[in-house]
Amino acid sequence: MEYIEGGPWKNRIEAYGGMPDSEALKFIRQIAGALKYLHNRKIMHLDIKSSNILLRDDEEAVLIDFGIFKRYN
């Protein structure tokens, strides 16, 4: 597993009391892309939350923690 430098999205939100809509939308779109990738492979990530999203260099959101997931047909 790759080491991802950067903290959870949750920490950033708490540290700054939120974030601008445009920045939040950038990360939301990236996570939506990751979920689409998983959906196309018939996988459901069942633990989506801000602490399971890491921010790499404050530019890229990375979905982590696949401890709870489900494959479907």
Rank of each mutant, 00 (worst) to 15 (best):
D65E: 13
K10W: 09
P8N: 12
A34Y: 04
K49G: 09
L55G: 06
W9K: 05
R12S: 05
D57T: 07
L54S: 12
R71Y: 11
E14F: 10
S50D: 15
N11L: 10
I64C: 13
I13F: 08
Q30K: 00
M44P: 04
K10A: 08
L54N: 05
A32N: 00
W9D: 05
E59P: 08
E23P: 01
I68V: 15
D21H: 07
D58A: 14
H39P: 01
W9F: 15
P8C: 13
D58T: 11
S51C: 11
Y3D: 02
A61F: 00
R12A: 04
E59Q: 15
I68M: 14
M19G: 03
M44T: 11
R56S: 15
I43S: 07
N11D: 14
I53P: 03
I64E: 10
M1L: 12
Y16L: 12
K26G: 02
E60L: 13
M1Q: 12
L55Q: 03
R12Q: 09
E2L: 12
I68K: 09
K26F: 01
I53V: 15
M19E: 06
G18L: 05
F69V: 09
F69R: 09
D57L: 04
N11R: 10
P8W: 06
G7H: 11
D58L: 15
R71A: 12
F69P: 02
E14I: 11
I68E: 11
I48H: 01
Q30V: 00
R12E: 14
I28L: 08
G67L: 02
V62A: 05
F69T: 13
K42P: 06
Q30H: 00
S22Q: 11
R41P: 03
M44F: 15
D47M: 03
N52Q: 13
L46R: 15
L46F: 10
Y3P: 05
K49Q: 13
E60M: 12
V62P: 02
E14A: 13
E23C: 02
R29A: 01
L55D: 06
L63M: 06
G17L: 07
S51V: 13
Y16D: 11
I13K: 07
G33I: 00
I4H: 07
N40W: 05
I4C: 09
G18D: 07
R56P: 04
N73E: 13
M1E: 12
L55I: 13
D47A: 06
E5M: 06
N73L: 12
S22L: 10
G6E: 03
G33D: 01
L35G: 00
H39S: 04
E14K: 14
K26L: 10
L63E: 10
S50L: 14
H39T: 00
G6P: 11
R56N: 14
K36G: 02
